[in-house]
Nucleic acid binder design. Structure first.
Lengths: 111, 111
DNA sequence: CCTCTCATTCGACATTCATCGTACAAGAGT
DNA sequence: ACTCTTGTACGATGAATGTCGAATGAGAGG
């Protein structure tokens, strides 16, 4: 057998209809989470452990949940790993230009 | 004499150079504050008491401070009143398109 | 079977936050 | 003067948040 998902509580992903701008803004207002998002813009999909953020694993899990429940990222089980990707299309369809403006502004402010 | 400002701690307004995107996102991630911003988009300047938000006056003061310290609004003393306005130009100069994208997305999500 | 890796859940902790009531300060208007 | 209006400051309070360590569960690979 190729791969079977883990027997863990299913990952909850809101539908685009359920996205709330305020939740998204809140999710992105944290430096660690913004770093995660920025990293994901450069790579289509990453495993949890491959992010250059300086927090404990359990803290990282917490941040992923906040991003996931806001609709910013999608997570997929694959054996022992959990792959994370931006929900680019869903976000763009629901709130055109929003993510671009925010991430651009963030990178602009790093100077 | 026309008008003299109150004898109160001066209003602190950050310079555009000091704006922090994460602070702005955090400031806008609250429904009351977003309502304030949205209201200010329609009117150039308003007195504090003229906002249709359902919170106590002291709470309103708190929200104004958060917005002000993030650089979103500017407040001006005038006799007994405090006038509030969006810092449109400063925000646009520092983070082009950011406020537009966010407020548009917010209004889009009210449907 | 045993161990290692990956990421989670749980519980705890300190901090921040939104909210309010009360008291206060000062201008406006009578 | 006196009172009303405007908005703040302070202190308290309950909720949410970011952080971690320890324990857990499950796949991967020897």
């Amino acid at each position: 057998m190729p791969r079977s998902p883990r027997n863990r509580p299913a990952l909850t992903h809101p539908e685009p209809d359920e996205f709330d701008v305020l939740d998204i803004l809140h999710a992105l207002s944290d430096p660690t989470r913004m770093t995660i998002v920025q990293t994901l813009r450069a790579a289509p999909e990453r495993a949890c452990g491959t992010f250059a953020v300086d927090v404990a694993p359990s803290t990282l899990t917490h941040h992923f949940r906040v991003l996931r429940e806001a609709g910013v990222i999608r997570q997929r089980e694959d054996g022992n790993r959990r792959w994370t990707a931006l929900r680019d299309e869903d976000l763009e369809a629901r709130f055109p230009g929003l993510m671009d403006a925010i991430v651009t502004a963030y990178e602009n402010g790093l100077a």
